[in-house]
């Protein structure tokens, strides 16, 4: 029994035939799981950033401000609305408790998105497409991103960042 010592040294006990079958199946599944992740790096179209640099809050702040000044087309709720050209570097800054600027993107066009925070960790959660990318202060999380659906998108912060966390909501437009 499990609560007492086995009759003989445990390693000398033979495996049952059902155990052998199951462990073989399980090993095959484990190998498949392990290989499928790198395989998808080559064939999949949704992979995490392979490019990230350390960036101080001040530097990122300056880069975002420069980006806004360059492509600003309007304002909404006190935030700049920015329409960057295709294939350009685009920036979103997370800070307590807002995402800025508001991006106007084109569907089917690739952009180089730079995500960082100038204070806490934030969670860049875009709804209703429903994906989340982690935003960490001191790091520029760089992603080549191509919107494949159009509409009005809401950016919710889903990493607790302080008492106003639930008010940290941003916008993004794709047309």
């Amino acid at each position: 029994m499990s609560l007492g010592s086995p009759e003989k040294y445990w390693w000398d006990e033979p495996l049952d035939k059902d155990e052998k079958t199951w462990v073989t199946v399980a090993i095959v599944w484990a190998i498949f799981l392990t290989l499928y992740m790198p395989y998808k790096h080559f064939t999949g179209k949704q992979n995490p950033s392979q490019e990230y640099t350390k960036v101080s809050g001040d530097k990122f702040d300056a880069a975002v401000d420069k980006f806004i000044a360059q492509y600003k087309v309007g304002e909404e709720k006190g935030l700049a609305v920015v329409a960057p050209p295709p294939n350009s570097d685009i920036f979103i800054r997370g800070q307590q408790f807002k995402w800025d600027p508001i991006l106007k993107l084109k569907k089917g066009v690739q952009y180089k998105l730079h995500l960082s925070s100038i204070d806490m960790n934030h969670g860049f959660s875009v709804q209703p497409v429903n994906f989340t990318i982690q935003v960490v202060p001191g790091y520029d999380n760089v992603l080549n991103i191509t919107p494949t659906t159009s509409g009005v998108f809401t950016i919710i912060c889903n990493e607790y960042c302080g008492l106003g966390h639930h008010t940290m909501v941003g916008r993004m437009y794709v047309d």
Binding site: G44, K45, Q46
Partner: peptide, 19 residues
Amino acid sequence: MVIYYWLSWKWLSELWLFG
């Protein structure tokens, strides 16, 4: 597990493109 795994990859493939 296999079905859910397959479904998850299918849901992922419907997202925007990242890389």
